[in-house]
């Protein structure tokens, strides 16, 4: 693993990588959430049955 230097440059480097990656990864979660409604086309859950334990 590449070690980050304990300097101000290291702090800036970490910050830039972290900030950009956060956007990328959270966008990935957004994509997953966008796809989630597709399950409604195939399956449906009956809430009344769920509450009864069936």
């Amino acid at each position: 693993m590449v070690s980050i230097p304990d300097t101000v440059q290291g702090a800036v480097l970490i910050s830039i990588i972290d900030f950009i990656l956060s956007f990328v990864i959270i966008s990935g979660i957004g994509v997953v959430l966008t796809l989630l409604p597709l399950v409604n086309r195939k399956w449906k859950v009956d809430e009344a049955k769920l509450k009864q334990g069936h």
């Binding site: 702090a11 959270i26 994509v31």
Partner: peptide, 26 residues
């Protein structure tokens, strides 16, 4: 879940983490 595009704001509102990180190092 209802509004997935808004999840971007969950990353956008975290600039403060990095500003504080860099200032702390400084």
């Amino acid at each position: 879940i209802a509004n997935p595009k808004l999840v971007i704001l969950g990353a956008g509102a975290h600039l403060g983490i990095f500003v504080a990180l860099i200032l702390a190092k400084l």
